[in-house]
């Protein structure tokens, strides 16, 4: 079996803070994860954008475990498509891209797009005056993989 990589937005309720949830994800289900974005405030719902890497079976069990502990797991099944060929390098999209996926090369003044940094916030879709961005789902839905 091959490991799969998926991105999830996870919302942790305040009462889950005392449980070692992430420890269990690693120890029990062998899920590697990186935190791409985090918003945590004591006493409030915390949000994490996680990239998980695991065998499909473990991925499913891990998510089920989190959901049983009141963690809301939203798969980030979308990705941003960009028609680079029609880009005029105006820079409008870089103004809204807070993760730094879209930046201007400050020597050549050309647009750089690093999909690895993209969290599919979709602000660039409206910001591009040339209408060159679109969001699309992965060819394989994460749910379909998890249900296999």
């Amino acid at each position: 079996m091959k490991e799969i990589t998926r991105r999830y937005v996870m919302k942790f309720p305040p009462q889950s803070a005392d449980k070692a949830l992430t420890y269990k994800l690693i120890k029990e289900y062998d899920i590697k994860f990186s935190i791409l974005k985090a918003e945590v405030r004591p006493g409030h719902t915390g949000s994490l954008l996680l990239e998980l890497e695991a065998l499909p079976e473990n991925m499913q069990k891990g998510i089920e475990y989190l959901e049983a502990n009141s963690v809301v797991c939203e798969p980030l099944g979308k990705k941003i498509k960009f028609e680079a060929g029609k880009c005029i390098n105006c820079g409008n999209c870089t103004g809204v891209c807070f993760t730094g996926a879209l930046t201007m090369d400050r020597e050549k003044w050309e647009l750089n797009f690093d999909p690895e940094l993209c969290v599919v916030c979709e602000l660039c879709i409206a910001a591009c005056p040339m209408n060159l961005f679109d969001s699309s789902f992965h060819e394989e839905e994460p749910e379909a993989i998890l249900n296999n």
Binding site: C90, N92, G95, V96, M104, R106, K108, W109
Partner: peptide
């Protein structure tokens, strides 16, 4: 440079016209 200071706050800048063009 990509950042300006507005009344003590650092603010990210972006062009809306193409310097490359």
């Amino acid at each position: 440079s990509g950042e300006i200071n507005i009344n003590g706050k650092k603010v990210r800048t972006a062009p809306v016209a193409s310097l490359q063009k």
